[in-house]
């Protein structure tokens, strides 16, 4: 009975604070939007691209604060701008794409650092880099809800084309469906999603949110539809666990959310019925035992 009370209180005490409720709302919404997109990111292999876009928005966020614009405006401009710049440099030079990505996103991030050191303002670098989910304003929440809904609606409408692009872009091309347009759409969605997740976990950890849930789900199923559900569930569970844990242990909320996601990944990696390393080992041992000559 006592344990039950303790367990209940573990949730109810933080819940009585408005800032925790808001943090939960933001983390869950951002988590789900990222998780849905992460299924395509994982399958295409775009984790470096996720890292790039998230770092490249820093100057945009700083400029937005400078000019009193919504943070999403500047972040989006720089996120999309960097993606375009990566594409242009990649097509017009012999440098390989991953090197181009490395150059562009670090340069953008450096520009952000320089700007922030010269701009006298209330912007806290720590909040941008590591998230400030316990202090989100009403405007922030509205931006996150609107952008998140926009991303989910576009994905819902074009999900079959996005999967076609991820699976076989040459076939898309052969059928007269432009794979470059689909790639651009997906990069656009990534830019907006990164902006949605910024408030929750900060620039440095955004890439985790757009990769880990999808990668975890990929270990657990062979069906894309199930991947979407599992990755979203992982993101919601991690958001709740992360926010409450950070309250009780007084640790970084963004860090706790990403750690919770990483724990889910580790569990799937070890225990997934078909893909888990422990079971794989067991199946291999059983097979060896059955094979004559062993």
């Amino acid at each position: 009975m006592d344990m039950l009370t303790t367990a209940t209180e573990w949730f109810t005490i933080p819940w009585s604070f408005a800032f925790i409720q808001r943090a939960l709302l933001v983390s869950v919404v951002a988590g789900v939007v990222c998780a849905v997109l992460s299924c395509w990111m994982t399958l295409i292999g775009w984790s470096l691209m996720g890292d790039a876009v998230s770092h490249a928005v820093l100057p945009g966020v700083v400029l937005s604060y400078m000019f009193g614009l919504p943070f999403a405006a500047g972040a989006l401009a720089f996120g999309a701008g960097s993606v375009a710049l990566i594409g242009v440099v990649n097509r017009t030079s012999r440098v390989k794409e991953d090197a181009v990505i490395g150059v562009v996103f670090t340069a953008m991030f450096a520009l952000g650092l320089v700007l922030i050191s010269r701009v006298p303002s209330q912007t806290d670098l720590g909040h941008i880099l590591f998230g400030n989910v316990l202090g989100v304003s009403d405007t922030d929440i509205w931006q996150i809800l609107l952008l998140g809904a926009a991303v989910l609606i576009v994905i819902w409408y074009k999900h079959r084309d996005l999967t076609l692009y991820a699976f076989d872009p040459v076939h898309a091309h052969a059928m007269g469906i432009n794979p470059r347009l689909l790639e651009t759409l997906l990069l656009g969605l990534l830019s907006v999603t990164v902006v949605v997740a910024l408030q929750a976990v900060g620039i440095v950890l955004v890439v985790a949110m757009v990769i880990i849930p999808g990668a975890t789900a990929y270990l657990l199923t062979d069906r894309f539809e199930h991947m979407l559900l599992i990755s979203s569930a992982v993101a919601v569970a991690a958001a709740v666990t992360g926010v409450f844990t950070s309250f009780h242990l007084n640790v970084s909320t963004g860090g706790a959310i990403v750690l919770a996601q990483a724990t889910a990944f580790a569990l799937a990696y070890l225990f997934s019925p078909r893909q888990g390393v422990l079971f794989k080992g067991r199946i291999a041992r059983r097979r060896r035992a059955r094979t004559p000559g062993h």
Binding site: L43, R160, D161, T163, L164, A166, F167, D168, H171, A172, M175, I177, Y218, T221, D222, R223, F224, H226, M227
Partner: peptide, 14 residues
């Protein structure tokens, strides 16, 4: 890739 045979064949219809 997590697609079924029917999903791949259906892509021909897109």
């Amino acid at each position: 890739f997590p697609v079924r045979v029917r999903d791949v064949v259906m892509m021909g219809r897109y």
